[in-house]
C-alpha cells in the first residue's frame, strides 16, 4: 500500500479531505507510523498558525478608527453617491466647497467666544471616561431636541485632560465640523453641525 502524498496529508490534517479519500487515509494513517507522524506535524503547523494571531494594539485601534472616519469625511460622496453625473457635479463644485470649508474652519478658529451651539452627532474610537460622560450628557435627549453646549469651554468642562488636536469643516447640509480630543489614554472624535 503506497503512502499518500504530503499534500494530501496536509489536507487530511486540516479536515479538508472528504469522502472515500478521507476514509482511505484514515485507515492508512492508523497503520503507517511515518504518515501518522507527518499528520501530527501538520497539526502542529495548524496550531502554530492559529496561535500566531496578533491582537490589535490598543493605541493603534483608536488611531485606525479615527483615521478611517477622517478619510471618509474627506471622501467625495459616500456610499450612495456613485452616480457618475452626480460625481461630476460634485467635482465641479469641489473648489467652492473647499473655499467654504476653509472659511468655516477660519471662522471656527477665530470666532470664540461666539462659538455656535454644539450638537453632538458622532463618536469614534476609544472613549475615555470623562468623554463618555460628556457624550452621554450631550446625547441623552432625543434628536428632536438635541443636547447643546453653549461654547467649546463648556463642552470641554467635562474633560479636564483633553487636548484639542484639530478642528475642520466638511460637507453636509449645514457645516459639519470635526473635533478630535486626545487624552493620555485615548482619543475621541466629535462631529457636530453648526446651525
Amino acid at each position: 500500500m503506497s503512502c499518500p502524498r504530503d499534500s494530501e496529508l496536509a489536507l487530511y490534517a486540516g479536515g479538508e479531505l472528504k469522502g472515500r479519500r478521507r476514509t482511505w487515509t484514515d485507515g492508512h494513517v492508523r497503520e503507517c507510523q511515518p504518515c501518522a507522524k507527518k499528520v501530527g506535524e501538520f497539526h502542529v503547523v495548524r496550531s502554530a498558525v492559529a496561535s500566531s494571531a496578533v491582537t490589535i494594539p490598543a493605541g493603534l485601534r483608536a488611531g485606525i478608527r479615527v483615521s478611517v472616519l477622517d478619510r471618509i469625511a474627506l471622501d467625495d460622496g459616500g456610499p450612495a453617491s456613485r452616480n457618475p453625473l452626480l460625481a461630476g457635479i460634485l467635482w465641479a463644485c469641489a473648489p467652492l466647497a473647499l473655499l467654504a470649508g476653509v472659511a468655516a474652519v477660519w471662522d471656527l478658529l477665530t470666532s470664540e467666544p461666539e462659538m455656535p451651539p454644539l450638537r453632538m452627532a458622532g463618536i469614534a474610537a476609544e472613549v475615555p471616561e470623562g468623554a463618555l460622560l460628556l457624550s452621554r450628557q450631550l446625547n441623552t435627549v432625543p434628536p428632536e431636541s438635541p443636547g447643546r453646549a453653549d461654547s467649546l469651554d463648556e463642552a470641554f468642562g467635562a474633560l479636564d485632560s483633553g487636548e484639542l488636536i484639530f478642528v475642520e469643516a466638511g460637507e453636509g447640509p449645514g457645516v459639519l465640523a470635526q473635533l478630535r480630543i486626545q487624552t493620555a489614554d485615548a482619543s475621541i472624535e466629535i462631529h457636530w453641525l453648526i446651525d
Binding site: T55, I56, I64, P79, G122, I123
Partner: peptide, 27 residues
C-alpha cells in the same frame, strides 16, 4: 444606516470588525 450615509453608524461597524481585519492583514 451607514448605507444611507450615516458616518456614525459606519464608525460603529469599524469598531466591531477592525480587530479581525487587522489580525488578517497583519498575518
Amino acid at each position: 444606516a451607514a448605507k444611507a450615509g450615516d458616518v456614525a453608524a459606519f464608525g460603529y461597524i469599524v469598531e466591531l470588525h477592525e480587530s479581525r481585519v487587522f489580525r488578517t492583514a497583519r498575518a
